[in-house]
């Protein structure tokens, strides 16, 4: 049955406001346009970008003012331009000499009290006992959460790789943003609760895109086919992927391939139903080791596939009047964004 609403101001799907695509003959084209609208809708405004950059610049200035032989880098979604509204900013302090000078508790406490005393952050927390000690705080101007770690260069290297992947894989950025939002709404993006992290998500989307028969033969432009590709992403990882057996791997050029788990002890696990993604920088490291909640992730992807295709079948049979104000994407993406007057369903 159709959830019938008139007009294109359906408050549940704010991104379809003034962007009605319900007259598209092909439902996958409708979905492609909705994906583009959604990305435009969640993308930060010029002012928001400026505010984030100012925050980072101010912190960098203060830290290098205190420690002139240090560099401050950003990594994670902020550095790769794959952040959703409200995403954290990840920063790392690295000694210029690369001698791990700042990898100790006294640096950690020195910086956290500096941040507190100079009112650079509110709710400052110093987490010293974690595997990766960090300072967490909230930027008073933008209310953005900031994490600062010390002397860990992995994140910087990963960010550089991701930036090059986004350049050489059109469609990657768009699909990653949708999948990240999909996971975030379901709290399946938090690695320490077994979710799928940002880098793992990027690896899955890129591997899917590069190995797709239509993409591998360059017979389609991914940006024109985002709708069908999103459905097929969920089809692969929600239904068909042989998680017990198959590792997503990358060669020296960063090109994806599959390899059997039997080939490398690093990918074997007491529970065979675990996600295995080979670290592009370290053949013996599984970057999705922490994703122990694969069952829920696979089920969520499979559910998204079901919802999307059923919506396509319903919309295909609906009249133009019934289609008006409908969203194809809305069944899987709920967004509570900057416009607080919109109610989150």
């Amino acid at each position: 049955s159709l959830d019938f609403k008139t007009g294109n101001n359906n408050p549940r799907y704010p991104w379809i406001r003034n962007n009605d695509h319900s007259k598209q003959i092909e439902i996958s084209d409708w979905l492609t346009m909705e994906i583009k609208d959604f990305i435009k809708y969640i993308s930060p405004s010029a002012e928001e970008i400026q505010a984030r950059n100012n925050t980072v610049g101010r912190l960098r200035e203060c830290i290098t003012g205190m420690w002139p032989d240090a560099e401050v880098h950003c990594f994670g979604s902020f550095a790769t331009d794959l952040y959703l509204p409200g995403s954290d900013i990840d920063m790392v302090v690295v000694s210029k000499a690369r001698n791990n000078k700042y990898d100790n508790r006294s640096s950690l406490y020195q910086l956290s009290s500096y941040i507190r005393n100079n009112k650079l952050g509110i709710n400052v927390e110093t987490i010293a006992k974690a595997k990766v000690p960090i300072i967490k705080f909230v930027d008073p101007a933008t209310k953005i959460h900031i994490d600062i770690s010390f002397e860990r260069t992995n994140g910087i290297k990963a960010a550089e790789l991701i930036i090059s992947w986004i350049k050489d894989t059109p469609g990657l950025r768009e699909l990653v943003l949708i999948v990240k939002q999909f996971l975030a709404v379901r709290r399946l993006n938090v690695v320490h609760t077994g979710g799928l992290g940002g880098f793992a998500t990027i690896c899955l989307v890129r591997s899917f895109l590069k190995l797709h028969p239509r993409m591998a033969t360059r017979s389609i432009d991914p940006l024109e086919n985002l709708g069908v590709l999103l459905i097929e992403f969920f089809e692969l990882y929600g239904y068909n992927f042989g998680y017990d057996n198959t590792v997503v791997a990358f060669d020296e050029d960063g090109d994806p391939y599959y390899v059997s788990k039997n080939s490398n002890a690093a990918f074997q696990n007491r529970n065979p139903f675990t996600l295995a993604i080979q670290d592009p920088h370290d053949k013996n490291n599984n970057i999705s080791r922490g994703t122990f909640n694969l069952r829920d992730i696979k089920r969520a992807f499979g559910g998204a596939f079901e919802l999307l295709v059923n919506k396509c079948y319903d919309m295909n049979q609906a009249t133009y009047k019934e289609r008006l104000g409908q969203s194809v994407l809305g069944d899987i993406i709920k967004y509570k964004g900057k416009q607080r007057d919109f109610e989150d369903a």
Partner: peptide, 12 residues
């Protein structure tokens, strides 16, 4: 695309 044809099931 010989170097991009892989099996999601058996990884071959």
């Amino acid at each position: 695309p010989a170097d991009l044809i892989y099996c999601y099931n058996c990884a071959e």
